[in-house]
């Protein structure tokens, strides 16, 4: 099969000529291959963008919740100690660490400038929590904090992203599934077109068999045509879709998902795989259809 694929791309125009040209089927095949490639580019862009989003959100999730403790200065250290020991017995927490004054100053600096006298201010103390996988039970933790250290407040600002990351992951899967469906539909469409071409040319096939043509020769004549058509159509569809993606307006980095739809860097090479993929699908589908038709003839 590999051999016949290379022979196909080679010089074998002879086999092509023995089958009369068929304008209408040819146009339909070109058009459908183009449309399918166009859709496939978007499905691919969707998968890639959803994948990036899922990765970004998942990494943002990896870690950072904080507990803020506000207490009179003389109780502060006790409360911090209570919270730390409480956290060490809470399932779903990988580590917890109280920030020292220097770190807190670094955090506040962008807002208040370097000269802030952190020590003199009644600032809350911060405890940084790194979440384990699976994570902790937020409601339960809040209740225990309220009971044992009334000045402590859990701030798990990244938790809302968890369902979003799941959704993005799901979206990536759907995109990949769409690609598979598009490939399958392309194969089905080419099989139908090839079957109709084979049926329309039964008398040609009979003549060829009668003068001593092997099946492989006859199959090649049809396979070559449909492979080239699928390649041409899919190339056009891919180019148009890539231009469409390239012209999508960009928003800022934090931009919404829609404006992140597109390819980045080497990702631009991926859609270029679609035309050869369409050609391989057409090759296999036509070959299958042609051999099946020939089996019914002597």
């Amino acid at each position: 099969m590999k051999n016949s694929f290379t022979a196909l791309l080679g010089a074998d125009r002879q086999a092509d000529r023995v089958v009369p040209p068929s304008g209408f089927t040819a146009q339909l095949t070109l058009f459908t291959a183009g449309a399918m490639a166009f859709l496939a580019v978007f499905a691919l862009a969707l998968s890639l963008a959803a994948g990036r989003l899922a990765d970004r959100w998942a990494s943002a999730l990896a870690g950072t919740a904080t507990i803020r403790i506000s207490a009179p200065p003389e109780q502060m250290d006790t409360q911090v100690a209570i919270v730390l020991s409480l956290l060490s017995t809470t399932p779903g927490i990988a580590s917890a660490r109280a920030m020292d004054a220097a770190e807190q100053r670094a955090l506040l600096e962008p807002w208040f400038g370097p000269d802030l006298p952190v020590d003199a201010l009644p600032l809350p103390r911060l405890i940084e929590i790194t979440e384990a996988n699976p994570g902790y039970d937020g409601t339960g933790l809040r209740q225990r904090l309220a009971a044992e250290a009334p000045g402590a407040v859990l701030d798990d600002h990244t938790r809302w992203r968890r369902p979003m990351a799941h959704a993005a992951e799901r979206l990536r899967l759907l995109g990949l599934l769409s690609l598979l469906l598009i490939a399958g539909a392309t194969g089905a469409m080419i099989t139908l077109a090839a079957n109709s071409a084979l049926a329309a040319n039964l008398s040609v096939i009979r003549v060829l068999r009668l003068v001593g043509a092997k099946d492989s020769y006859i199959v090649r004549a049809f396979v070559r045509r449909f492979t080239l058509r699928a390649l041409t159509g899919a190339s056009a569809g891919t180019v148009f879709a890539m231009i469409g993606v390239a012209l999508l307006p960009r928003a800022d980095e934090a931009g919404a998902f829609l404006t992140g739809l597109g390819f980045q860097g080497a990702g631009w090479l991926l859609p270029l795989l679609l035309p050869p993929l369409a050609a391989v699908v057409a090759f296999a589908a036509t070959r299958f259809a042609a051999f099946r038709t020939l089996k019914g003839l002597t």
Binding site: V211, D215, S216
Partner: peptide
Amino acid sequence: ARDDVALTRRRIGVVHQDCQFLDHL
């Protein structure tokens, strides 16, 4: 086999009762 049939037909010239040609060539 099917390919053997093809090879055999290369050694037998047949003038069919209803001569069929490729009409576009």
